[in-house]
């Protein structure tokens, strides 16, 4: 019965066949003389076998085909986003340039419009920063189990 606590730590690895031959023999020799460890081995074996028999979820047809959608979908989605954003930036820049250089528009109106646009952009920026901060503080360890 001696050295039980040390042997107990090896029982799990013994069951998995992950011990060296020497450690394996040590566990077997001890278990031959120790009812407590023999029982622990039997119970751990039952748990181990039980887990291996748990139900295996199977994907349905939709999920199965979803798993087969590969790089083409991903790539086209990425390219679509980049193209869309790039186009938007170019058009917005062009519109701003046209507006700023348009001599028929009153200077007062230009300043007011610039202030409005700047204000909206600042608001958007502050919301974005808030979101980013919230995302950073979202810890995996806080995952509800």
């Amino acid at each position: 019965m001696n050295d039980c606590s040390h042997i107990e730590e090896s029982l799990s690895a013994y069951l998995d066949g992950e011990l060296t031959q020497q450690d394996r023999q040590r566990v077997e020799l001890h278990a031959d003389q120790c009812d407590r460890c023999t029982q622990a081995l039997a119970e751990l074996t039952r748990i181990r076998e039980g887990i291996s028999q748990l139900r295996q979820p199977e994907p349905n047809e939709i999920q199965w085909s979803r798993m087969m959608r590969l790089t083409a979908t991903k790539t086209s989605r990425g390219v679509g986003w980049i193209a869309g954003i790039a186009g938007g930036v170019v058009l917005a820049g062009y519109a701003v340039y046209e507006f700023a250089t348009d001599e028929t528009t009153d200077a007062f109106f230009k300043v007011a419009t610039a202030a409005l646009a700047g204000g909206v952009l600042l608001l958007l920026f502050s919301v974005l920063m808030e979101r980013l901060h919230a995302r950073k503080s979202d810890r995996y360890k806080d995952v509800e189990l």
Binding site: P57, P59, N60, Q63, W64, R66, M67, M68, R69, L70, T71, K74
Partner: peptide, 18 residues
């Protein structure tokens, strides 16, 4: 969740494929 699991596997297969 099966749908989310399918998405994760799809990403895994993409990486495997590349």
């Amino acid at each position: 969740n099966a749908d989310d699991a399918a998405d994760a596997v799809q990403d895994g297969l993409c990486a495997w494929w590349s």
